[in-house]
């Protein structure tokens, strides 16, 4: 069950936004299970200290096996294409060779929580998807305005410190709904 983030305590450092972290694992018979039934709420947080507290007890993405995802979204935004904050937007997708997931995820979420993207209210959340071959990092934003998405890309390149020639692809959620490729973030069938 969802629990809202506690107020930052005395001496804690508040974040610009509250966030919630979710976990999902594909079940054996996933075809019949709705996407959001697999989404497990882990915790919400409102300060830097609360974040590190939670982060230190959850397993690092690179240490997990199978078909699993962490979703870190602003509180109030469900990690689904249909959410009002997401439905007109899209995501940057970065494919990562095995072994890079934990470091890149940490760099990405630190940049997001620390408001390093400088695109106003645009950022919705981030996802790390552990898969059998490459892992997939994605950063979701509200609109598909090209000035904004280019700025997000530039910041991603700077903060992720990716190997040269890493491919980055932008995909609008309406496209994802149409083609049903990439992993599904929806109940839409």
């Amino acid at each position: 069950p969802f629990r809202p983030a506690p107020k930052p305590g005395e001496g804690e450092h508040p974040l610009q936004y509250n966030y919630a972290i979710w976990f999902s694992r594909r079940s054996q018979n996933s075809k019949s299970v709705q996407y959001d039934k697999n989404l497990k709420f882990i915790a919400s947080f409102a300060s830097v200290e609360q974040f590190w507290n939670i982060y230190s007890y959850i397993v690092r993405p690179g240490d997990m096996s199978g078909h699993v995802d962490y979703h870190l979204f602003k509180e109030g935004i469900r990690p689904m294409w249909e959410d009002d904050a997401n439905k007109h937007g899209g995501k940057w997708i970065i494919r990562l060779k095995k072994g890079l997931a934990s470091r890149c995820w940490e760099n990405l979420i630190m940049a997001m929580l620390g408001e390093q993207f400088m695109v106003g209210e645009e950022i919705c959340g981030a996802v790390i998807s552990i898969r059998y071959q490459d892992d997939i990092l994605s950063l979701w934003n509200r609109s598909n305005d090209s000035t904004i998405t280019s700025r997000i890309r530039d910041t991603l390149q700077r903060v992720l410190n990716l190997p040269p020639h890493t491919i980055m692809e932008y995909k609008e959620h309406t496209e994802s709904i149409k083609d049903q490729t990439s992993f599904r973030n929806t109940n839409f069938v």
Binding site: Q16, V48, E49, W52, M110, G114, E115, Q116
Partner: peptide, 21 residues
Amino acid sequence: GTRIVYDRSRLMQLRNSPLAR
């Protein structure tokens, strides 16, 4: 209003504070 911004090194520094455990 003013945005609350933290760079990577500040976040790493706060990771080691007693309140973060």
